[in-house]
Design a protein around this nucleic acid. Structure first.
Lengths: 214, 214, 214, 214
DNA sequence: CATGAATGAGAATTCATTCAT
DNA sequence: CATGAATGAATTCTCATTCAT
């Protein structure tokens, strides 16, 4: 099962690479398992099976189940955070930014395993305060800061006339949360076109806050 | 049953009452425990301790852990459903209805243990398809049907000019979902005034859809 | 459920009768349950249900599960023992006695719930030494004493020429034991006509031990 | 084996051996426990203790209590079945075969833990129809087929003159069943020399069925 | 490093027995 | 007497974690 081929030269780097690759495999398997069963319901035995390794091996990479879970959230977050940071420095009308974000959200979150991360956060976050804090700081706090900055700029520029979103940036992402929650829960009974939902949302939202050109 | 006058019947009633009361105690304790730990994490031992009864007693009222969970959701839903049905028959402007609903939601859901029921549905529903279906039919399906009817009426009366909510009634309750998710997860870091959020939401929403009186 | 009709006169006797009747009901129900599930597998709850009474009532008639089991065996034995005693005093040829016993065994044991008692003895007796001893003394010991006496008489009379059965009276009842064991265990795959088996057995047996009239 | 360095394969074998040995230990412990307490009465905790292993370890070898029980019967049967098959092909007078079987039965069954297996079959078989069927097919069905073949041959050769045993092969093993049932149940009160019983049985039996040489 | 067998604390569930009504 | 709700010890089975190979 363990392929340990040709340890000839450059061994040091090869090792580090292999270690990192294996870590990723475990995290991927863990995401599958946690997403399907939740934290308590997930069995490390199955994580190992999904990753194609032995159960004990997990402990060579992660201290315990909880650490694995936390690292899973952490590792999935890093690339996401970067995306958000970019939004802050964009110098475009709020509406454009929002619509781009809607697309990005649909593509990068709803369309990938990342939606499972968000879902895990929603379902299990309460029991992992440390990771909830980390998540909060990395995702909503930054995203909301960006939103607030953009709103301010939009008002100063005269694009929009309403500062509600500055007080309640949650209103921007609310339909995104619903889309994530809806998926796999009620979509069998009432399918939901998440991207259309987001577009309709922003459409209404900007009808409400844009300066009305008479 | 016996020839002796009357004390029997009173006893029977007392018994039924006692039974019902105990059932409620267990359900209340179960809600505490499930809300705190999730389905898998909850220990029936602790449910019993919280209810002040012996472990085995739970099994006199519920067949097993899963049934207890399902009955918990079911029992918490019944009174809720009634409230929703009422909304259908109200004959007031959509805006009024919505604002009342916002208040009702804040009071009856966010302000009570019912919010934990909704949260459990969000967190665990995926693993209990039967109860998810039941919940869908009893809550969102009815609520959305009511919303759709009200929107249609509003348009016919000329109160509002947009039918987006007919297609995506989810947009109405999205901030409510966010409020529930936010609570206990991020509110330590950024408190959220749920009722203000809902009012702001409806304020924006109606700015977008109401007929503009020039 | 409890029928307590007409407590008019002769109350004392009526009571005693009723008590005895109820005791019998419980024992009958217990036999069903123990026969079907064995001692450990039997649930007093089901005994009560079969008897149409409440679980607690059993404890008004029997100290505990083990006592109930012992009384069950005891009560079922009393009438049986009498039958055996009669055999001792019969003054007929051994062969006749044996064939009558075969018939009696088929009718009175294999054809009734008594076979379940014997089976219970075989299955559970080892774990109830006290009752095994009681059973031994009441059934095989007496039966074997009778057999030995008859064999002696038969030899003295010149009916039979072999005293093997005096040493091993077990050989007389062996096919009966097989019939009881076979029933419900292998008879689905190979039915066994118990009475024919017993007759064939005695036929062979007497061919072997009877004085050969040349 | 020793030619190649192949440290892998050696290890593999050691492991498989160890696994098999442990399986046997558990089965041995289980036999002790089941024989003493019956299926329902046996506690896996005690099986583990008897085997000198942890509770959970049992479940690495057997899916559950019932499977353990079935495997116990199965494993104890395999060597036994072989013995029986041999009897079919023996070409000796029926009497000789029977006496050998008596010896084999006394030695291989009554003198070993196998008698406990038979006893378990008798006591618990009713509640495990699948295993009863398996047992029937592997033991009595084969043994009886062998007996029938031998009887036929004996008649054809003129050794014996009676075909009762063809119809009721149970008559051959009946005293063996009694010996098993007697042991541990009544032998404290009336010891039974099982081998002498079997010999006496065959002695009588052949007196009855052998051609009488005048 | 990797493996997977072994461990044992812990959880759900059952059921004989008790006891207030 | 009879009831059946309540109890809690006992039992089966699971699974995170450890450790010898």
């Amino acid at each position: 099962m363990s392929a340990r081929p040709a340890p000839r030269k450059g061994t040091k780097e090869k090792w580090a690479e292999r270690r990192a690759a294996r870590r990723e495999m475990i995290l991927a398997a863990a995401l599958d398992e946690f997403a399907e069963r939740g934290f308590e319901g997930a069995r490390l035995d199955d994580v190992a099976r999904r990753a194609g390794i032995a159960k004990g091996t997990i402990y060579l990479y992660f201290a315990d189940k909880e650490t694995l879970f936390q690292e899973l959230i952490r590792s999935a977050l890093s690339p996401f955070v970067a995306t958000i940071e970019v939004a802050r420095s964009i110098d475009l009308p709020l509406r454009i930014v929002c619509e781009r974000l809607a697309g990005a959200f649909a593509r990068e979150v709803l369309g990938t395993r990342r939606k499972d991360i968000v879902r895990l956060m929603i379902s299990e976050g309460r029991r992992f305060p440390k990771i909830a804090k980390f998540y909060y700081e990395e995702v909503p706090a930054r995203a909301f800061a960006a939103v607030r900055a953009l709103v301010r700029k939009g008002i100063e520029r005269g694009e929009i006339v309403d500062d509600t979103l500055e007080k309640f940036p949650q209103l921007i992402i609310a339909p995104g949360v619903v889309a994530i929650v809806w998926d796999g829960l009620f979509d069998k009974y009432e399918p939901l076109d998440a991207e259309a939902l987001l577009l309709a949302h922003f459409n209404l939202l900007f009808k409400a806050i844009e300066r009305r050109t008479p």
